[in-house]
Design a protein around this nucleic acid. Sequence first.
RNA 1: GGCGUCGUAGCCAAGUGGCUAAGGCAGCGGAUUGCAAAUCCGCCAUCGCGGGUUCGACUCCCGCCGACGCCUCCA
Length: 522
Amino acid sequence: MKIQFYNSLTNQHEQFTPLEPGKVSMYSCGPTVYDFAHIGNFRSFLFGDLLRRFFELTDHEVHHVMNITDVGHMVEGESDKMMEAANRVKVNKKSGRVPEGAIENPEDPYQIAEFYTQAFLEDARRLGYKVAYEYPQNVPKATHHVEGANGMIGMIQKLLERGHAYVADDGVVYYSVESFPGYGQLSGNSLEKIQSNAGGRVSEANQSQKKHPGDFMLWKPDQHHIMKWDSPWGVGYPGWHIECSVMARSIIGRDVIDIHTGGEDLIFPHHECEIAQSCGATGEDRFANFWIHARFLFVENEKMSKSLGNFYTARDVFDGKVKVTDENTGELMEMGRSVHPAVLRFELIKSHYRTNMNFTAKGLIDSAQTIDRMVEFRRTLESKIEDDGGQAEVDLSHPVLGEFTAMLADDLNVSGALGVMLPWIKGDHPDPQLSLAVLKKMNSVLSVAPINEGIANAAEEVESESDAAEFEQAQQWANEMDTARQDKDWPTSDAFRDKIHAAGFEVQQTPEGSKIKRKLSV
RNA sequence: GGCGUCGUAGCCAAGUGGCUAAGGCAGCGGAUUGCAAAUCCGCCAUCGCGGGUUCGACUCCCGCCGACGCCUCCA
């Protein structure tokens, strides 16, 4: 099967061949843990997850690594991301988003980072992000990789030795972009074309000590920074870009990896700098063979931002805080209905990673319908299979599964794959065991029906069955509804139906009587 | 100014130099139903605009219009 992706490094589709046959090494830029991760973050992460699961479907052994950026970064002057986070934590504590007692001391960036790391992992696992189940071995923290020869300090030393870095008059260690001819190959920028401060974000003071305006910081001596480490260049903290170069190399154990993923905004400067650092330190001519970037997510046709009021964390969506326009009043109001993680996952992966996807309340409802159908299909198949009926084996030679996979092999064409899957679900299924095997394979990539397909020991974390009592209650009502229907007592029957709906369940008339099922996203 | 992505029905979204332009949602008609829901059957687009290449373009080329991203906080 021909596997091809759009490679940001060359700006074209390229056939993918792993460095080692049958094995794929992947590094994804992870979250900065000074706030809850938002749906835009997860769009990017889940695209990486999809890629990883695709490779597993096609019998590759995947080593996927994603970092946690838990080092505060300089913004301007004395302000620091972690300090901003500290202030936010104080606010969030009041509003209840951060539970009382979760962060004892908001002044301690380590506590803040740890809190948001755990929150991230929880959200990520609910969304079926596989690598989050491999914490900590494949989800390294930047703070654990600062020191030592294989840490950031070691790599900076290496870069100094090899003439790719210098210590400026102010004591800051900079990477010299002019020392690396390949600088700019990812972003398409050349050193001449990189306008100093075109984005208006750099302070003059920081620029003056550099040899070239494009030079970027590797180590900043700063006694006052709360997160600080001893180094040959004084007590201070590392630059932002160096962590990914270091962790990719040390966890994956290769100088050159197969795939590096991230959001499109990371192309420049972050990924450009990673390439310069990694290649500068290893002497290789490339760091990753493939750079694959996900585009930004929009919310109701606008860029997601806090000021527009359309900024959603994953847990905002789970909790039904997505705003919709009220049909009667025209005002924005919260949906007020919880959204199943599988619905959010599906919504975030169903459109191509290289398009600007538009996150909408309507889209969520559409997604819920589709997942409902998949789940229902799976239940139907399972109910037709005798207990202990054994497992049917299926591989990619199965025509439908093969076509589904071929779609994904073409630059992760999820829509195309769904265009194969959904009509197939609608069709006839004379061999439920075989169909179930096919569905499971498909779901090992989509991971929505259920969301934890292929993840060992994940079930109990995702589906909290604490609401089993609610389910019992609803089924009880459904039974009473049946009794009423037998007596042709329609008002009573309708009343029970209303009760069931109000409790968040659907009720279906079947030959075996009324059956209920939980609505995924109501 | 530099670099890059994109423009397919009410919405989401595949795809191809020429067979009926996937699939989903919504909608419409019908079957079914106590009424609904679910389900099933049927209907529902000429591909931003203008030129060119070609026997033939939505698909290739040029121009235009429009949307969006990056150019040192950002997934």
